[in-house]
Design a protein around this nucleic acid. Structure first.
Length: 301
DNA sequence: GCGTCCAGGTCTACC
DNA sequence: GGTAGACCTGGACGC
């Protein structure tokens, strides 16, 4: 294993809080190795090559190493460093969020622990495809769908691991193939249409991360993708760094009513009203509220 | 082992 | 604008 890069992340950064921020770390081409205390990921470089990289926590940052024979020049370091920093949201400013969290009783743990960064893929395309694969099914089925996408349509990297497929690879696969081999079921035409529009350049999801457009306009563009409804769009917005939407699913809904209404159920507008005072950070406060116990349960060490 | 039912989020048709 | 039904799969359950 060869050290290839160290990414500075600052004092407030928590590697494992970010890795276990939600379910993405369990979906290929991310791989958590609890025994090795590392997160691996297959990256597609700008030169078209795919590499498997291993990431581990070091004080104030992330150490990146490679099990393979990657040419570790300045161009590689810049490219891989940018992609990994993007996944871990290193450049995102959370100071306003932490200031708000410190002000609120019951939420001070957030600033103390460095929670709040949600792990994301290097590309918005991958995040959107994965989010469609989380809709209307169990998590086990999501794992099957994403696993098949990588293993059957992604490019092979070192160690028998696969990259996430490109828009072109999905676009060329066909609906029958997606249904039969990838097990994406009725979502197949949605995935196909999205991949084809991206491949043809009709939509540019990557521009959403840096877009100066108001949040509601980006939300409308995200929701314009077939197969993306309020839940999926709200969560994609969080991965774009905009936290105005809650992205409520059945699990979060049940957890909220368990935490705040002694299990008494009600309509979603009760949840929306509860988080309205949290302003532009409400989506993040909502997510951290319902998943507060996750970290203690999932943290491997 | 087989059949049935249910959960999960979004789309479309209909009122 | 609101609602019902269809979409597809895995898992739970009963026989």
């Amino acid at each position: 294993m060869r050290n290839v890069l160290t990414i500075e992340a600052g004092k407030r950064f928590s590697f494992w809080r970010t890795v276990f921020s939600h379910g993405w770390c369990a979906l290929p081409p991310f791989y958590v190795d609890k025994a090795d205390r590392s997160l691996s990921r297959v990256l597609r470089l700008e030169n078209g090559r795919t590499v498997l990289l291993r990431m581990e926590e070091v004080p104030g940052g992330i150490r990146v190493s490679s099990p393979g024979s990657v040419k570790c020049d300045a161009r590689f370091r810049k490219d891989a460093g940018r992609q990994i920093a993007d996944c871990f949201r290193i450049g995102e400013d959370f100071s306003d969020f932490y200031r708000e969290a410190r002000r609120l009783t019951g939420y001070r743990w957030i600033a103390r622990s460095g929670a709040g960064r949600l792990l994301r893929a290097p590309t918005v395309f991958e995040d959107v495809v994965k989010m469609i694969c989380t809709t209307n099914c169990s998590w086990a089925l999501t794992e099957i769908m994403v696993g098949n996408l990588c293993a059957k349509l992604g490019e092979e990297a070192e160690g028998g691991r696969f990259a996430f497929p490109t828009a072109r690879a999905i676009a060329r696969s066909g609906e029958a193939y997606l249904r039969k081999e990838i097990k994406t079921g009725y979502r197949s035409p949605y995935l196909l249409e999205f991949a084809r529009r991206v491949d043809r350049g009709e939509i540019d999801p990557e521009s959403w991360r840096s877009s100066p457009l108001p949040t509601d306009e980006i939300f409308a563009q995200v929701k314009d993708v077939k197969g993306i409804g309020p839940y999926a769009a709200g969560n994609i917005m969080k991965l774009l760094g905009r936290y105005d939407y809650l992205g409520i699913d059945s699990w979060c809904r049940a957890k909220f009513f368990e935490l705040h209404r002694n299990g008494r159920k009600g309509p979603d507008r009760i949840i929306e009203r509860f988080y309205e005072p949290f302003g532009k950070w409400r989506g993040l406060f909502f997510w951290l509220d319902v998943t507060k116990e996750w970290y203690r349960q999932k943290f491997p060490f």
